[in-house]
Nucleic acid binder design. Structure first.
Lengths: 156, 156
DNA sequence: GTCGGTGCAAATGCTTTGCATTGAT
DNA sequence: ATCAATGCAAAGCATTTGCACCGAC
């Protein structure tokens, strides 16, 4: 069990208590699966992961719990280019939350880059804002996709 | 008429021709309204803008044309935090495409910052990727929202 | 025991699509 | 004249919600 698991669970329980909501087995299961999803997922993949782990929860509960996790500041919604469904990202206690996405293969590379946060803070300060987060996604072509494309070309 | 109008229209026509598609009055109206929307909009607001300008187009055509504009590289879809609908952003020939969004008021501030592009290119290069674009959004609280909040507190 | 939670199925609402008609080339 | 575009209404589909039963506190 990674060391982050206990604190995150505590954060969620604290939030639920503050809102007079209950910490149920289903909510615990969803949170645990979110943490194992390693950052980025959608409602459906989460539901499948839970099913594969033998944790059966209804779709409605997944959506309801994702909303709570969002309110608790644990995840944020996230829309990939061309995706039709909302993706979620685990943000609490996590750096980085930046990604590079391949527009051809869908490949996703997390980026570790403090400069994004620094840039964000500097820009916000210049306008007198205070920040609560940011989203930085680079769209591009991965080396694999590029070489696959050139293979396709030369084989014609 | 801003100087960008003619070129953008030409870009669209070129794209349509290359795909054996037709440049119709409806598509011209949609593009013109997109350009006047000054960057960020959704399908519904676009439809209203067109109605207010006396340009009647069906909702289906708006969606279909937005898809074409996306394929032509003129706009990209864009999901604001908590928004339920897809927003679109005019990207062709436009810098900046970065924003700061107030999570309380929805206020939107476009950011002019070359460093984002530089950072993007450097990160992509480090991984051997080539980029086609990026998305950078800062979520925060604007000075107005912050002062409104403190007023609310002191009046209680 | 009291509310809040859950699952189910139905509803919602954005977006897409089938089809007959219209229009650009 | 051809073949794509349009408008309309219906369909799709992710997400939300109403309700009866269940479970955390």
């Amino acid at each position: 069990m990674p060391p982050i698991l206990a604190p995150l669970c505590a954060v969620f329980r604290r939030y639920l208590k503050s809102a007079s909501l209950r910490y149920t087995g289903e909510r615990a299961d969803v949170l645990a699966t979110v943490m194992e999803a390693d950052g980025l997922f959608d409602a459906d993949s989460l539901l499948m992961d839970m099913h594969n782990a033998g944790k059966e929860v209804s779709k409605a509960t997944v959506y309801r719990t994702l909303r709570l996790l969002q309110d608790a500041g644990i995840v944020t919604p996230f829309m990939l280019l061309d995706a039709k469904v909302t993706h979620y990202q685990l943000v609490y206690g996590r750096d980085p939350c930046d990604y590079m996405v391949c527009v051809q293969t869908g490949e996703l590379v997390p980026l570790q880059c403090d400069e994004v946060v620094m840039l964000r803070e500097r820009l916000a300060l210049e306008h007198g804002w205070t920040t609560v987060g940011h989203r930085f996604v680079i769209y591009g072509t991965s080396p694999q996709a590029a070489s696959a494309a050139s293979r396709d070309l030369s084989s014609q």
